[in-house]
Amino acid sequence: MDRQPSPAIDTQDLNLWYGTFQALFDVNLKIKSGLITSLIGPSGCGKTTFLRCINRINERLGYVRTTGSIEVLGHDIYAPEVELIQVRKLVGMVFQRPNPLPLSIRENILFGFRTHNAGKKITKSDEDQIVEDALKRVLLWDTVSSRLHHSATHLSLEEQQKLCIARLLPVKPAVLLMDEPCSALDPRATEAVEELIWELRGDFTILIVTHNMAQARRASDECIFMLLGKVIEHGLTEDVFISPEHKETADYIEGRYG
């Protein structure tokens, strides 16, 4: 942690309103490249809202207004010339409930890739390679390689969630946003997905929203604590958990409110 590479995500005075309700207040965060950062805080504190700003999926709701800036890899994603599709390509998202498309496993992996390479000639063997690479990367290849043409919705939840991560990889994202990626999973599956996330550490900047204190503690490098739309504390996970600077953080971590 001695070297200080430029942050993968850098927000400046980010404010966000849903209609007249302000959900984020002056969020200034620098999220380090290649690490896993967890976002914790009670429900409604703005964690998910913040996450959804980073690939601009929030805007789909017409009544959302933001001020301030977010730079991803040094580029302002709210700049006027920005193409949304390119933002989403670089910043992938994994949801709370696994949401594989109602297509085969193979088609799920290729969906994003084809979307971004429409019109180009891609041979079947190239596609096979992409599918194999993505599935191997998420430790799913051995279990599903024999049934790539089966529907993805028949996989177990753990496998579905891994698939949802895998399908982001062929377009080579730099940032992976995960919104409570394990909350629909049982403890064993949670462990497996956490292991996978740890596996991906280094190659991707990963930002995880979680309600699970233990998960934040064991599976992240840095931790951000938010409360009522404000960032209260941001530091190394061990520091935040062992010696938090703010009383609110300590209270939350100890379970005095949630």
Binding site: I85, N99, L101, V171
Partner: peptide
């Protein structure tokens, strides 16, 4: 058609039409 499918597509950078064509209409 569940909203989750559309979100999945949009988050992979699919346009609305690509989403409709490949996911919404078939279902």
């Amino acid at each position: 058609v569940p909203q989750a499918f559309r979100e999945a597509c949009w988050n992979m950078g699919a346009t609305r039409w690509q989403t409709i064509r490949h996911v919404v209409l078939p279902n």
